[in-house]
Design a protein around this nucleic acid. Structure first.
Lengths: 206, 206
DNA sequence: ACACAAACTTGCGTGTACGCAAAAATTCGC
DNA sequence: GCGAATTTTTGCGTACACGCAAGTTTGTGT
Protein backbone atom coordinates (compact mmCIF):
# COMPACT_ATOMS: atom_id res chain seq x y z
CA UNK A 1 0.00 0.00 0.00
CA UNK A 2 1.80 3.06 -1.26
CA UNK A 3 1.24 6.38 0.34
CA UNK A 4 -0.61 8.52 -2.18
CA UNK A 5 0.52 11.68 -4.04
CA UNK A 6 1.27 11.30 -7.70
CA UNK A 7 4.17 9.58 -9.32
CA UNK A 8 7.57 8.79 -7.98
CA UNK A 9 9.09 11.60 -9.94
CA UNK A 10 7.07 14.27 -8.20
CA UNK A 11 7.68 12.82 -4.80
CA UNK A 12 11.40 12.67 -5.38
CA UNK A 13 11.43 16.23 -6.57
CA UNK A 14 9.57 17.39 -3.53
CA UNK A 15 11.84 15.38 -1.28
CA UNK A 16 14.90 16.95 -2.85
CA UNK A 17 13.46 20.41 -2.47
CA UNK A 18 12.67 19.82 1.15
CA UNK A 19 16.02 18.25 1.84
CA UNK A 20 17.70 21.28 0.34
CA UNK A 21 15.77 23.91 2.22
CA UNK A 22 15.93 21.94 5.45
CA UNK A 23 19.68 21.61 5.10
CA UNK A 24 19.94 25.29 4.28
CA UNK A 25 18.04 26.28 7.37
CA UNK A 26 19.87 23.88 9.65
CA UNK A 27 23.28 25.00 8.47
CA UNK A 28 22.32 28.64 8.72
CA UNK A 29 21.17 28.14 12.30
CA UNK A 30 24.34 26.32 13.21
CA UNK A 31 26.89 28.62 11.64
CA UNK A 32 25.08 31.83 10.87
CA UNK A 33 23.70 32.68 7.48
CA UNK A 34 26.88 34.12 6.04
CA UNK A 35 28.92 31.03 6.70
CA UNK A 36 26.84 28.74 4.58
CA UNK A 37 28.02 28.03 1.08
CA UNK A 38 25.85 26.70 -1.67
CA UNK A 39 28.15 23.73 -1.89
CA UNK A 40 27.58 22.94 1.76
CA UNK A 41 23.84 22.91 1.29
CA UNK A 42 24.08 20.72 -1.78
CA UNK A 43 26.38 18.32 -0.05
CA UNK A 44 24.18 18.12 3.04
CA UNK A 45 21.23 17.33 0.82
CA UNK A 46 23.16 14.80 -1.22
CA UNK A 47 22.89 16.48 -4.59
CA UNK A 48 25.28 18.35 -6.82
CA UNK A 49 25.71 22.09 -6.45
CA UNK A 50 24.31 22.52 -9.92
CA UNK A 51 21.13 20.75 -8.91
CA UNK A 52 20.73 23.05 -5.98
CA UNK A 53 20.31 25.85 -8.48
CA UNK A 54 17.62 23.96 -10.30
CA UNK A 55 15.54 24.31 -7.17
CA UNK A 56 16.50 27.64 -5.72
CA UNK A 57 17.93 30.70 -7.34
CA UNK A 58 19.47 32.16 -4.23
CA UNK A 59 20.74 31.01 -0.90
CA UNK A 60 18.22 33.17 0.86
CA UNK A 61 15.39 31.56 -1.02
CA UNK A 62 16.39 28.11 0.16
CA UNK A 63 16.60 29.16 3.79
CA UNK A 64 13.34 31.04 3.80
CA UNK A 65 11.57 28.28 1.92
CA UNK A 66 12.10 26.01 4.88
CA UNK A 67 9.66 28.22 6.72
CA UNK A 68 7.33 29.41 3.99
CA UNK A 69 7.23 26.24 1.91
CA UNK A 70 3.60 25.37 1.55
CA UNK A 71 2.07 28.53 2.80
CA UNK A 72 0.98 29.76 -0.61
CA UNK A 73 -0.99 26.68 -1.48
CA UNK A 74 -2.32 26.47 2.04
CA UNK A 75 -3.82 29.92 1.75
CA UNK A 76 -5.65 28.92 -1.41
CA UNK A 77 -6.81 25.68 0.21
CA UNK A 78 -7.98 27.56 3.27
CA UNK A 79 -9.97 29.91 1.08
CA UNK A 80 -11.61 27.02 -0.74
CA UNK A 81 -12.46 25.43 2.58
CA UNK A 82 -14.53 28.40 3.64
CA UNK A 83 -18.28 28.41 3.19
CA UNK A 84 -19.21 29.77 -0.21
CA UNK A 85 -21.84 32.04 1.25
CA UNK A 86 -19.26 33.84 3.34
CA UNK A 87 -18.33 37.19 1.80
CA UNK A 88 -15.12 37.01 -0.15
CA UNK A 89 -13.47 39.72 1.89
CA UNK A 90 -13.89 37.84 5.14
CA UNK A 91 -13.02 34.51 3.65
CA UNK A 92 -9.78 35.81 2.20
CA UNK A 93 -8.81 37.66 5.34
CA UNK A 94 -9.38 34.66 7.54
CA UNK A 95 -7.61 32.33 5.13
CA UNK A 96 -4.54 34.54 5.08
CA UNK A 97 -4.40 35.31 8.78
CA UNK A 98 -4.91 31.66 9.58
CA UNK A 99 -1.81 30.69 7.62
CA UNK A 100 0.34 33.27 9.32
CA UNK A 101 -0.76 32.71 12.88
CA UNK A 102 1.78 30.06 13.72
CA UNK A 103 4.93 31.86 12.85
CA UNK A 104 8.21 30.00 12.66
CA UNK A 105 9.98 28.90 15.77
CA UNK A 106 11.85 31.68 17.50
CA UNK A 107 15.29 30.63 16.40
CA UNK A 108 14.45 30.51 12.71
CA UNK A 109 12.63 33.79 13.00
CA UNK A 110 15.57 35.39 14.77
CA UNK A 111 17.86 34.17 12.05
CA UNK A 112 15.69 35.58 9.31
CA UNK A 113 15.17 38.95 10.90
CA UNK A 114 18.85 39.30 11.61
CA UNK A 115 19.84 39.62 7.98
CA UNK A 116 18.51 42.22 5.54
CA UNK A 117 18.71 39.79 2.66
CA UNK A 118 16.75 37.17 4.53
CA UNK A 119 14.20 39.68 5.72
CA UNK A 120 13.61 40.82 2.20
CA UNK A 121 13.29 37.30 0.91
CA UNK A 122 10.92 36.42 3.71
CA UNK A 123 8.62 39.31 2.96
CA UNK A 124 8.78 38.71 -0.76
CA UNK A 125 7.91 35.07 -0.27
CA UNK A 126 4.32 36.23 0.07
CA UNK A 127 4.15 36.80 -3.68
CA UNK A 128 4.06 33.04 -4.02
CA UNK A 129 0.45 33.06 -2.94
CA UNK A 130 -0.61 35.17 -5.88
CA UNK A 131 -1.17 32.42 -8.39
CA UNK A 132 -2.92 29.94 -6.08
CA UNK A 133 -5.03 32.75 -4.68
CA UNK A 134 -5.94 33.91 -8.14
CA UNK A 135 -7.38 30.53 -9.01
CA UNK A 136 -9.26 30.23 -5.77
CA UNK A 137 -10.69 33.72 -6.11
CA UNK A 138 -11.63 33.14 -9.73
CA UNK A 139 -13.79 30.24 -8.61
CA UNK A 140 -15.83 32.64 -6.54
CA UNK A 141 -16.07 35.35 -9.16
CA UNK A 142 -17.58 33.90 -12.23
CA UNK A 143 -18.99 36.94 -13.88
CA UNK A 144 -16.31 39.47 -13.01
CA UNK A 145 -13.94 41.38 -15.25
CA UNK A 146 -11.19 39.36 -16.84
CA UNK A 147 -8.43 40.89 -14.79
CA UNK A 148 -10.36 40.90 -11.54
CA UNK A 149 -9.06 37.69 -9.97
CA UNK A 150 -5.48 38.47 -10.88
CA UNK A 151 -5.67 42.03 -9.59
CA UNK A 152 -7.42 41.08 -6.38
CA UNK A 153 -5.00 38.28 -5.65
CA UNK A 154 -2.12 40.63 -6.33
CA UNK A 155 -3.64 43.23 -4.05
CA UNK A 156 -4.05 40.72 -1.23
CA UNK A 157 -0.51 39.56 -1.68
CA UNK A 158 0.72 43.13 -1.70
CA UNK A 159 -1.19 43.96 1.48
CA UNK A 160 0.31 40.92 3.13
CA UNK A 161 3.77 42.03 2.13
CA UNK A 162 3.19 45.46 3.60
CA UNK A 163 2.09 43.94 6.88
CA UNK A 164 5.06 41.59 6.96
CA UNK A 165 7.48 44.35 6.09
CA UNK A 166 6.14 46.39 8.96
CA UNK A 167 6.41 43.47 11.28
CA UNK A 168 9.96 42.46 10.55
CA UNK A 169 11.07 46.05 10.63
CA UNK A 170 10.67 45.79 14.37
CA UNK A 171 14.20 44.49 14.58
CA UNK A 172 16.01 46.48 11.92
CA UNK A 173 16.20 49.62 14.02
CA UNK A 174 19.75 48.94 15.04
CA UNK A 175 22.25 51.51 16.12
CA UNK A 176 22.55 51.12 19.84
CA UNK A 177 19.82 53.44 20.92
CA UNK A 178 16.72 51.75 22.08
CA UNK A 179 13.89 53.23 20.13
CA UNK A 180 10.47 53.13 21.63
CA UNK A 181 8.51 50.92 19.33
CA UNK A 182 4.89 50.03 19.41
CA UNK A 183 5.07 46.33 18.74
CA UNK A 184 1.96 45.07 17.08
CA UNK A 185 1.16 41.45 16.56
CA UNK A 186 1.34 40.06 13.08
CA UNK A 187 -2.31 39.01 12.93
CA UNK A 188 -3.15 42.53 13.97
CA UNK A 189 -1.11 44.07 11.20
CA UNK A 190 -2.42 41.59 8.67
CA UNK A 191 -6.02 42.39 9.53
CA UNK A 192 -5.43 46.09 9.25
CA UNK A 193 -3.67 45.74 5.93
CA UNK A 194 -6.25 43.38 4.50
CA UNK A 195 -9.04 45.61 5.72
CA UNK A 196 -7.75 48.19 3.26
CA UNK A 197 -8.24 45.92 0.29
CA UNK A 198 -11.46 44.38 1.57
CA UNK A 199 -13.66 46.99 -0.13
CA UNK A 200 -12.24 45.93 -3.47
CA UNK A 201 -13.12 42.33 -2.76
CA UNK A 202 -16.63 43.30 -1.75
CA UNK A 203 -17.09 45.39 -4.86
CA UNK A 204 -15.94 42.60 -7.12
CA UNK A 205 -18.40 40.23 -5.54
CA UNK A 206 -21.29 42.62 -5.20
CA UNK B 1 23.96 81.05 -13.96
CA UNK B 2 24.01 77.34 -13.19
CA UNK B 3 21.07 75.20 -14.07
CA UNK B 4 19.39 74.30 -10.80
CA UNK B 5 19.08 70.92 -9.09
CA UNK B 6 21.17 70.42 -5.98
CA UNK B 7 24.87 70.03 -5.66
CA UNK B 8 27.39 68.87 -8.17
CA UNK B 9 27.55 65.48 -6.53
CA UNK B 10 23.94 64.68 -7.11
CA UNK B 11 24.01 65.85 -10.68
CA UNK B 12 27.02 63.74 -11.45
CA UNK B 13 25.43 60.73 -9.92
CA UNK B 14 22.35 61.19 -11.97
CA UNK B 15 24.40 61.76 -15.09
CA UNK B 16 26.32 58.57 -14.48
CA UNK B 17 23.15 56.63 -13.95
CA UNK B 18 21.66 57.96 -17.14
CA UNK B 19 24.82 57.40 -19.10
CA UNK B 20 24.85 53.82 -17.92
CA UNK B 21 21.28 52.99 -18.76
CA UNK B 22 21.44 54.87 -22.05
CA UNK B 23 24.55 52.96 -23.02
CA UNK B 24 22.92 49.71 -21.94
CA UNK B 25 19.88 50.35 -24.10
CA UNK B 26 21.88 51.52 -27.10
CA UNK B 27 24.18 48.53 -27.03
CA UNK B 28 21.29 46.14 -26.55
CA UNK B 29 19.52 47.61 -29.55
CA UNK B 30 22.63 47.39 -31.67
CA UNK B 31 23.75 43.88 -30.81
CA UNK B 32 20.82 42.19 -29.14
CA UNK B 33 20.42 41.92 -25.40
CA UNK B 34 22.48 38.77 -24.97
CA UNK B 35 25.55 40.19 -26.61
CA UNK B 36 26.02 43.00 -24.17
CA UNK B 37 28.48 42.53 -21.35
CA UNK B 38 28.53 44.54 -18.20
CA UNK B 39 32.03 45.61 -19.11
CA UNK B 40 30.81 46.98 -22.43
CA UNK B 41 28.20 49.07 -20.72
CA UNK B 42 30.65 50.37 -18.17
CA UNK B 43 33.17 51.24 -20.83
CA UNK B 44 30.59 52.97 -23.00
CA UNK B 45 29.58 55.05 -20.00
CA UNK B 46 33.14 55.79 -19.01
CA UNK B 47 33.13 54.18 -15.60
CA UNK B 48 34.61 51.04 -14.13
CA UNK B 49 32.66 47.80 -14.21
CA UNK B 50 32.53 47.85 -10.46
CA UNK B 51 30.85 51.23 -10.50
CA UNK B 52 28.23 49.91 -12.83
CA UNK B 53 27.15 47.60 -10.06
CA UNK B 54 26.86 50.46 -7.64
CA UNK B 55 24.03 51.73 -9.82
CA UNK B 56 22.32 48.63 -11.16
CA UNK B 57 22.20 45.15 -9.79
CA UNK B 58 21.46 43.45 -13.06
CA UNK B 59 21.99 44.04 -16.73
CA UNK B 60 18.25 43.93 -17.32
CA UNK B 61 17.69 46.65 -14.77
CA UNK B 62 20.02 49.00 -16.58
CA UNK B 63 18.35 48.45 -19.94
CA UNK B 64 14.84 48.79 -18.66
CA UNK B 65 15.72 51.83 -16.60
CA UNK B 66 16.43 53.71 -19.80
CA UNK B 67 12.72 53.52 -20.46
CA UNK B 68 11.20 53.57 -16.99
CA UNK B 69 13.62 55.97 -15.37
CA UNK B 70 11.50 58.74 -13.94
CA UNK B 71 8.12 57.16 -14.27
CA UNK B 72 7.74 56.40 -10.58
CA UNK B 73 8.31 59.94 -9.43
CA UNK B 74 6.24 61.26 -12.31
CA UNK B 75 3.26 59.27 -11.16
CA UNK B 76 3.50 60.78 -7.71
CA UNK B 77 3.93 64.24 -9.19
CA UNK B 78 0.94 63.72 -11.46
CA UNK B 79 -1.14 62.70 -8.49
CA UNK B 80 -0.14 65.79 -6.55
CA UNK B 81 -0.98 67.93 -9.55
CA UNK B 82 -4.59 66.78 -9.52
CA UNK B 83 -7.28 68.86 -7.84
CA UNK B 84 -7.63 67.90 -4.20
CA UNK B 85 -11.37 67.70 -4.47
CA UNK B 86 -11.13 65.00 -7.09
CA UNK B 87 -11.82 61.58 -5.59
CA UNK B 88 -8.65 59.68 -4.85
CA UNK B 89 -9.65 56.75 -7.02
CA UNK B 90 -9.97 58.89 -10.12
CA UNK B 91 -6.92 60.94 -9.37
CA UNK B 92 -4.75 57.89 -8.96
CA UNK B 93 -6.12 56.17 -12.02
CA UNK B 94 -5.56 59.18 -14.22
CA UNK B 95 -2.11 59.80 -12.81
CA UNK B 96 -1.03 56.26 -13.53
CA UNK B 97 -2.61 55.95 -16.97
CA UNK B 98 -1.18 59.31 -17.94
CA UNK B 99 2.35 58.13 -17.25
CA UNK B 100 1.93 54.99 -19.27
CA UNK B 101 0.26 56.46 -22.31
CA UNK B 102 3.41 57.30 -24.19
CA UNK B 103 5.04 53.94 -24.24
CA UNK B 104 8.63 53.56 -25.36
CA UNK B 105 9.53 53.78 -28.99
CA UNK B 106 8.78 50.65 -30.94
CA UNK B 107 12.32 49.43 -31.16
CA UNK B 108 13.00 49.59 -27.45
CA UNK B 109 9.67 47.98 -26.75
CA UNK B 110 10.36 45.21 -29.21
CA UNK B 111 13.68 44.59 -27.56
CA UNK B 112 12.15 44.37 -24.13
CA UNK B 113 9.30 42.10 -25.08
CA UNK B 114 11.62 39.78 -26.94
CA UNK B 115 13.40 38.54 -23.83
CA UNK B 116 11.73 36.94 -20.82
CA UNK B 117 14.24 38.49 -18.46
CA UNK B 118 13.64 41.94 -19.83
CA UNK B 119 9.88 41.50 -19.86
CA UNK B 120 9.97 40.50 -16.22
CA UNK B 121 12.17 43.42 -15.29
CA UNK B 122 9.96 45.80 -17.22
CA UNK B 123 6.84 44.66 -15.43
CA UNK B 124 8.56 44.65 -12.07
CA UNK B 125 9.80 48.17 -12.61
CA UNK B 126 6.34 49.30 -11.61
CA UNK B 127 7.15 48.53 -7.99
CA UNK B 128 9.32 51.61 -8.03
CA UNK B 129 6.24 53.77 -7.85
CA UNK B 130 5.21 52.32 -4.52
CA UNK B 131 7.19 54.61 -2.28
CA UNK B 132 6.51 57.87 -4.13
CA UNK B 133 2.86 56.94 -4.44
CA UNK B 134 2.68 56.12 -0.76
CA UNK B 135 3.80 59.61 0.16
CA UNK B 136 1.48 61.28 -2.28
CA UNK B 137 -1.47 59.20 -1.11
CA UNK B 138 -0.65 59.83 2.52
CA UNK B 139 -1.00 63.54 1.89
CA UNK B 140 -4.60 62.96 0.90
CA UNK B 141 -5.45 60.58 3.72
CA UNK B 142 -4.74 62.30 6.96
CA UNK B 143 -6.98 60.42 9.30
CA UNK B 144 -6.69 56.93 7.86
CA UNK B 145 -5.22 53.81 9.36
CA UNK B 146 -1.47 53.73 9.71
CA UNK B 147 -0.94 51.14 7.03
CA UNK B 148 -3.49 52.58 4.64
CA UNK B 149 -1.22 54.64 2.40
CA UNK B 150 1.33 51.86 2.12
CA UNK B 151 -1.25 49.21 1.37
CA UNK B 152 -3.11 51.31 -1.16
CA UNK B 153 0.07 52.31 -2.94
CA UNK B 154 1.13 48.69 -3.00
CA UNK B 155 -2.26 47.67 -4.37
CA UNK B 156 -2.09 50.26 -7.13
CA UNK B 157 1.39 49.15 -8.02
CA UNK B 158 0.29 45.54 -8.02
CA UNK B 159 -2.67 46.28 -10.27
CA UNK B 160 -0.38 48.09 -12.65
CA UNK B 161 1.93 45.11 -12.75
CA UNK B 162 -0.95 42.81 -13.57
CA UNK B 163 -2.01 45.04 -16.44
CA UNK B 164 1.53 45.27 -17.75
CA UNK B 165 2.05 41.56 -17.46
CA UNK B 166 -1.06 40.95 -19.47
CA UNK B 167 0.02 43.46 -22.04
CA UNK B 168 3.51 42.18 -22.65
CA UNK B 169 2.25 38.63 -22.73
CA UNK B 170 0.88 39.49 -26.15
CA UNK B 171 4.21 38.58 -27.64
CA UNK B 172 5.30 35.62 -25.54
CA UNK B 173 2.96 33.24 -27.31
CA UNK B 174 5.68 32.02 -29.59
CA UNK B 175 5.82 28.65 -31.23
CA UNK B 176 5.08 29.27 -34.89
CA UNK B 177 1.33 29.05 -34.81
CA UNK B 178 -0.45 32.32 -35.00
CA UNK B 179 -2.77 32.40 -32.07
CA UNK B 180 -5.80 34.57 -32.28
CA UNK B 181 -5.29 37.15 -29.60
CA UNK B 182 -7.55 39.91 -28.56
CA UNK B 183 -5.09 42.72 -28.29
CA UNK B 184 -6.16 45.34 -25.82
CA UNK B 185 -4.52 48.68 -25.46
CA UNK B 186 -2.42 49.32 -22.40
CA UNK B 187 -4.54 52.23 -21.15
CA UNK B 188 -7.52 49.96 -21.47
CA UNK B 189 -5.94 47.24 -19.39
CA UNK B 190 -4.66 49.72 -16.85
CA UNK B 191 -8.11 51.19 -16.37
CA UNK B 192 -9.68 47.82 -15.91
CA UNK B 193 -7.03 46.74 -13.42
CA UNK B 194 -7.16 49.96 -11.48
CA UNK B 195 -10.94 49.85 -11.45
CA UNK B 196 -10.61 46.76 -9.30
CA UNK B 197 -8.70 48.57 -6.60
CA UNK B 198 -10.67 51.79 -6.90
CA UNK B 199 -13.24 50.72 -4.28
CA UNK B 200 -10.46 50.41 -1.74
CA UNK B 201 -9.32 53.94 -2.50
CA UNK B 202 -12.85 55.25 -2.16
CA UNK B 203 -13.34 53.46 1.12
CA UNK B 204 -10.12 54.83 2.56
CA UNK B 205 -11.16 58.32 1.66
CA UNK B 206 -14.79 57.78 2.64
C1' DA C 1 9.58 -7.30 -20.36
C1' DC C 2 11.34 -3.92 -23.71
C1' DA C 3 12.60 -0.10 -25.95
C1' DC C 4 11.57 4.64 -26.60
C1' DA C 5 10.32 9.26 -24.91
C1' DA C 6 10.33 12.65 -21.43
C1' DA C 7 12.15 14.63 -17.38
C1' DC C 8 15.84 15.27 -13.98
C1' DT C 9 20.79 15.53 -12.67
C1' DT C 10 25.35 16.78 -13.32
C1' DG C 11 29.94 19.04 -14.90
C1' DC C 12 31.69 22.61 -17.21
C1' DG C 13 32.36 27.24 -18.69
C1' DT C 14 31.20 32.02 -18.76
C1' DG C 15 29.53 36.09 -16.98
C1' DT C 16 27.71 38.31 -12.82
C1' DA C 17 26.96 40.26 -7.97
C1' DC C 18 28.90 42.24 -4.14
C1' DG C 19 31.96 42.87 0.32
C1' DC C 20 36.01 45.11 1.40
C1' DA C 21 39.53 48.60 1.69
C1' DA C 22 42.32 52.03 -0.65
C1' DA C 23 42.28 56.06 -3.66
C1' DA C 24 40.01 59.96 -5.83
C1' DA C 25 36.48 63.44 -5.81
C1' DT C 26 33.36 66.73 -3.58
C1' DT C 27 31.71 69.30 0.23
C1' DC C 28 32.12 72.05 4.36
C1' DG C 29 33.89 74.72 8.36
C1' DC C 30 36.78 78.23 9.16
C1' DG D 1 41.00 79.61 -0.45
C1' DC D 2 42.61 75.47 2.58
C1' DG D 3 42.59 71.24 4.92
C1' DA D 4 39.61 67.78 7.09
C1' DA D 5 35.32 65.05 6.63
C1' DT D 6 32.17 62.66 3.79
C1' DT D 7 30.94 60.36 -0.30
C1' DT D 8 31.94 57.96 -4.57
C1' DT D 9 34.84 55.30 -7.54
C1' DT D 10 37.71 51.62 -8.29
C1' DG D 11 40.39 46.98 -8.12
C1' DC D 12 40.46 42.74 -6.27
C1' DG D 13 38.81 38.46 -4.62
C1' DT D 14 35.21 35.22 -3.78
C1' DA D 15 30.96 33.11 -4.36
C1' DC D 16 27.05 32.64 -7.28
C1' DA D 17 23.58 32.05 -11.27
C1' DC D 18 22.63 29.82 -15.26
C1' DG D 19 23.00 28.04 -20.40
C1' DC D 20 24.40 24.06 -22.51
C1' DA D 21 25.06 19.27 -23.60
C1' DA D 22 25.95 14.89 -21.88
C1' DG D 23 24.52 11.14 -18.80
C1' DT D 24 20.99 9.04 -15.84
C1' DT D 25 16.42 8.02 -14.12
C1' DT D 26 11.41 7.57 -14.54
C1' DG D 27 7.17 7.06 -17.25
C1' DT D 28 4.64 4.84 -21.33
C1' DG D 29 2.90 2.13 -25.03
C1' DT D 30 3.08 -2.32 -26.95
Amino acid sequence: MPDETGGLRERKKLATREALSAAALRLALERGAENVRVDDIAEAAGVSPRTYNNYFSSREQAIVAAVTAERASRVAAALRARPREEPLAEAVTEAVVEQYTSEPAGEALALITSSPRLRKEYVEAAVAMRQPLESAIAERLDGAAALAPAVLAAAVSAATRVALAHWVRASDTGGGFVVVRVERSLPDLLREALAQVAPALRAAQG
